[in-house]
């Protein structure tokens, strides 16, 4: 019993939701492998993992935000702005160190802006970040002057495509980010405070939790993770296009909700987010390979969000399910 609990409380512990996501991923892989001869290749597996890097990092931050009862629909464009900053540094032949830190720095700064609007300005997160989304969209357009930032030097690419002890750098960074966020969430007072705020901001305040500080910090953390994602983006593609990050927020929210994090806050699963990201990217890649145009990708994501939330709403209406949820 004790051993089981210790396992369940471990860094990687699986609940029913996470097992079903894993099964869904494997099932999708089998179906696509049968349907397309190009699917089950090592090259394609790497493509899927490669395409998951940014979403994994942003998904970790989005998990914290949703668990806190917040949200950030501008996160994709925040990555775009950070990518532009990195691109400018690279274009000016800046040193690699500056190119590495400018992304997280811009991310943190924009996280502060979001927090100022949502936390200090008390604008509901969904409305505040929607407003910022509009502002940032135009900012991206103005900064790029209607043109792509392209042909950037391979400074970052060489750094981030490297391997340390045979492990690719992106895998190392994601593993460290996961561990750091997991520790913060499950082993520090900050995590408890975040979950208490997600449950009820008023009760959290009555319990003596520094609500403003915790909320502010979480938006900044999400910004930093997004800045790191931007660094990987620029390293991989070596260009910044006008429509950068336009579906990222949708994808991130979908992956986090798929993973079992409550849209209402107070409950979250980091492992679920990772599996949610992988499932999303596997579906998007597989559908493309069996000939579904990429235009349909947001449709799949949207239907997944509505499907999961709809299913949860219906199952919560059953009294037994509500009891089981409380026990979970």
């Amino acid at each position: 019993m004790n051993a089981v609990r210790q396992f369940r409380n471990g860094v990687i512990s699986m609940n029913g939701r996470e097992w079903s996501l894993l099964v869904a991923c494997l099932l999708a892989i089998v179906v696509f492998a049968v349907a397309s001869p190009h699917y089950a290749t090592s090259g394609n597996a790497i493509t899927v993992l490669r395409n998951s890097v940014e979403l994994l990092l942003i998904g970790l931050g989005m998990t914290l935000l949703l668990a806190m009862g917040g949200i950030d629909v501008s996160i994709g464009i925040v990555m775009g702005l950070a990518a532009i900053a990195i691109g400018r540094v690279l274009g000016a032949d800046g040193n690699p160190l500056l190119a590495l830190v400018v992304g997280p720095l811009v991310g943190a700064l924009l996280g502060c802006v979001t927090a100022a609007v949502v936390v200090l300005g008390r604008v509901p997160a969904i409305v505040g970040t929607l407003g910022l989304l509009g502002v940032y969209r135009t900012a991206v357009f103005v900064l790029l002057g209607g043109q792509w930032l392209s042909g950037l030097p391979a400074t970052l690419t060489n750094l981030l495509a490297a391997s340390v002890l045979g492990i690719p750098v992106p895998a190392l960074v994601i593993a460290s980010a996961y561990l750091a966020v997991w520790l913060a969430l499950r082993r520090t007072p900050y995590g408890l405070h975040l979950l208490a705020i997600g449950n009820s901001e008023e009760k959290a305040r009555l319990s003596g939790i520094p609500v403003v500080k915790v909320r502010f910090m979480t938006f900044v953390v999400s910004g930093v993770l997004t800045g790191i994602a931007a660094t990987f983006y620029v390293a991989t593609y070596r260009n910044v296009e006008m429509s950068i990050g336009s579906t990222l927020a949708l994808d991130a929210i979908a992956a986090v909700i798929l993973g079992g994090t409550s849209i209402l806050g107070g409950r979250c699963s980091l492992l679920g987010t990772v599996l949610g990201v992988l499932l999303l990217r596997i579906l998007q890649n597989g559908l493309l390979l069996i000939g579904v145009p990429s235009l349909w990708q947001p449709v799949v994501t949207g239907v997944l969000i509505i499907g999961v939330l709809g299913f949860e709403a219906i199952s919560n209406r059953l009294p037994l399910a509500r009891f089981q949820r409380a026990r979970a």
């Binding site: 082993r187 208490a196 009820s200 319990s207």
Partner: peptide, 26 residues
């Protein structure tokens, strides 16, 4: 807080913690 355990509720806002590399751990 309904989503937290008994111990977490009892200590919420004044947790016992130890500092490792300046990070407070529960």
């Amino acid at each position: 807080s309904e989503n937290l355990s008994i111990a977490e509720n009892v200590f919420l806002g004044r947790e016992l913690k130890r500092s490792i590399f300046g990070i407070p751990f529960l």
